[in-house]
Design a protein around this nucleic acid. Structure first.
Lengths: 158, 158
DNA sequence: TATTGTTATACTCTATAACTATA
DNA sequence: TATAGTTATAGAGTATAACAATA
């Protein structure tokens, strides 16, 4: 069977007039576009701390949860264990975090922010919050709150 | 200078009680988590059509914009030209789209869905819409509309 | 000179298998 | 037997450089 195109004399889509209404009706498409847009700004700002998004989320979570294990970090951040090893190693080499023997489980290691790490993470978090307001500058504070609530309704477990 | 951890006798964070409140206050973090959650379901459902998310968005956009060029697709979907080549090639080999000489620019190629392609894409779109309602099942119709509006406010250019 | 489509290639991110030491 | 952490490696996704044909 030959596969003929439907519209031989098709209306040429000009660069400005591409119809993307269908994709824009999907939550997933819009969430992805938003994430990419926000994360792009985030990456630029976090570069001053030598943090990529994943480094920041790991470091921040350690700072807020002293003694957390690698396994817990993996579970909560959705990172696979082999991919976390290098991240932890780098943060440790930079002197931002420290490993300490786990209290009850000698297989595990408790992760802690150093004094210097905690200070840097605190500054990065302040930058992230300022940046957040800029990235979502087209939203009112109430809209921003609504947006986050709705997003969490979608991805948080039933 | 030695870098000492802040809390030697730190409260051990248990798996269930990891504090992620800071990350959850950021739009980017929540948008990313949502996108990943929705796209995971999307991938599973689209596998029956042999579509990954990017294949679906390319095919659907071609179907809705007969005669669109590769360059236009790249611009609107955020795909780099070298990475689009293989996608187009596969869709063409599957008989879902067809290349036709561009009306006015002999460098360019107009992309068109074939009759078979249009039918498959139509079915995939119907599946996507059904899936959409399931993925965002914790949202009312009004909330879903609000969510999409707010997301677009964030990522659409000023 | 600039743009479309293309090839080749590098880099990053993510995923899988398997090992060790402890539980 | 199962789990925490690790190594090595494979695969997918994304990025840059450079080219021929055409504008």
């Amino acid at each position: 069977m030959t596969l003929k195109a439907i519209q031989p004399p098709a209306p040429p889509a000009t660069a400005e007039a591409v119809d993307t209404r269908f994709l824009e009706s999907l939550v997933g498409y819009n969430a992805r576009r938003t994430a990419l847009a926000v994360i792009e700004v985030f990456m630029q700002e976090m570069a001053q701390y030598d943090f990529r998004p994943v480094d920041f989320s790991v470091a921040s979570t350690i700072a807020h949860n002293p003694g957390i294990t690698s396994r817990q970090l993996c579970a909560v951040l959705g990172v696979l264990p082999p991919n976390l090893v290098g991240l932890i190693k780098q943060l440790e080499q930079r002197g931002l975090i420290e490993r300490q023997p786990h209290a009850t489980d000698r297989r595990a290691t408790g992760l802690h922010a150093t004094r210097e790490g905690a200070a840097l993470i605190k500054r990065a978090e302040t930058t992230a919050q300022a940046l957040e307001l800029r990235a979502a500058s087209r939203l009112t504070a109430a809209e921003r709150k609504t947006l986050i609530t709705l997003l969490q309704k979608v991805y948080l477990a039933p």
